[in-house]
Simulated scan of single mutants.
Amino acid sequence: MVSVVPGHLVPQPDAEAFADRLSERVARRVDELEESADMIDFAFSTALLALQAHCVADPEADRLETWKATVTAMQLGSALFAVTGAGEGAVECFINDRLRTIPAIGPQSYADAGNWLNAFWLALICREQKRMTQLCEIPLERLRSPEGAYDEFVYHWIDVQQTYWLRRPELVDKLMTTFETSHPDAARIAPRDAVQCLMYPPLNLFYQVVRKREEEFGPALVEALNLHKTYWTADEDRATKREGALALGPLAMACLAHDGKFPIDVESPFIPKYLLTHGWLGEFPT
């Protein structure tokens, strides 16, 4: 039996046109990166917003434009860490249909844990294994924000995903530590509702995948999507934001489960069908 989790954002008549305009803005910012990468964080954040806007207009992601927005966001996320990981020279990055030579800019405060999670999840959704490996090889210390913007469990969570993907030892111990430190009462920086509704659910879904608990994954995914919806409808301001259109973390974990042959009997615009099943595989270079 298929479980359905409805979305909360209703596409307006101009939704597709708005999403396409955002993608055009992203394309211009990508072109500018070859002169200077100083604004690459804005290019990445705009690409994420464009992806969310496309998902509002196209809840199943069956438009080619939605897949291209996903790929472009993924490419920019990887590029952000590539150019901030090199202190001199230039870095070659394939973004928006062609190879680009982008000046290296060295360490930047925005090459942090939050952007790492978004970049890694996008690479997972696009099934870009090489990019996933490159991101997982980034040392945790490089992701620490000098302003202390993230709770410690966020770094434990990144460590768990890096350990899993690179097949490093002590995965179970690291996973248990992450669970212990992810309780809302243990958080000192993130708001309680963000921890409970947005940060914890992907970790729980990952646990179901690692333990190969196929029967438990579906209910956990339904819970994750309902919590996502709860967070993004908590007040009128949040309920109108396009940032809530896509549940990026749960979608990434659902892609991991799907590729592991788990039955995914859940339908929701928060996890667009053709992103989950990689329906646009091979449509154009990534």
Results as ranks from 00 to 15, higher is better:
4 V>Q: 06
5 V>D: 07
9 L>R: 03
9 L>F: 03
15 A>M: 06
22 L>R: 13
23 S>E: 10
23 S>R: 04
25 R>F: 10
26 V>M: 08
28 R>L: 12
29 R>M: 15
30 V>P: 01
33 L>F: 02
34 E>C: 02
37 A>C: 03
38 D>S: 13
40 I>C: 03
47 A>F: 05
50 A>V: 11
54 H>T: 02
56 V>E: 03
65 E>M: 06
66 T>K: 03
70 T>A: 13
70 T>W: 10
72 T>Q: 04
74 M>T: 12
74 M>D: 12
77 G>W: 07
80 L>Y: 02
82 A>V: 04
83 V>P: 02
83 V>K: 02
84 T>L: 02
91 V>E: 01
92 E>V: 13
94 F>R: 06
94 F>A: 09
95 I>W: 06
97 D>H: 05
97 D>C: 06
100 R>L: 10
101 T>M: 01
110 Y>K: 02
111 A>Q: 04
112 D>Q: 11
114 G>Y: 15
118 N>A: 11
126 C>R: 05
126 C>I: 07
126 C>Y: 05
129 Q>A: 13
131 R>W: 10
142 R>M: 00
147 E>W: 13
155 Y>V: 11
158 I>G: 00
159 D>R: 08
160 V>T: 06
161 Q>D: 04
162 Q>N: 14
164 Y>K: 07
164 Y>V: 11
166 L>Q: 08
169 P>W: 11
169 P>S: 14
170 E>L: 15
173 D>W: 13
178 T>C: 15
183 H>D: 10
184 P>Q: 05
188 R>K: 15
189 I>T: 14
189 I>S: 03
191 P>T: 15
192 R>D: 10
192 R>M: 14
193 D>P: 14
195 V>R: 01
196 Q>T: 10
197 C>N: 12
199 M>D: 07
202 P>L: 00
204 N>E: 14
204 N>Q: 13
204 N>P: 06
209 V>P: 00
209 V>A: 10
210 V>E: 08
211 R>C: 05
221 L>A: 02
224 A>Y: 00
226 N>K: 09
232 W>C: 05
234 A>Q: 11
236 E>T: 13
238 R>K: 15
238 R>H: 12
238 R>G: 10
240 T>M: 10
240 T>N: 09
241 K>L: 14
244 G>K: 07
246 L>Q: 10
252 A>R: 00
253 M>I: 12
255 C>L: 01
256 L>V: 13
257 A>E: 04
263 P>H: 07
269 P>Q: 01
271 I>C: 03
272 P>W: 07
276 L>E: 02
278 H>G: 03
279 G>I: 08
280 W>V: 10
280 W>R: 09
282 G>M: 08
282 G>F: 00
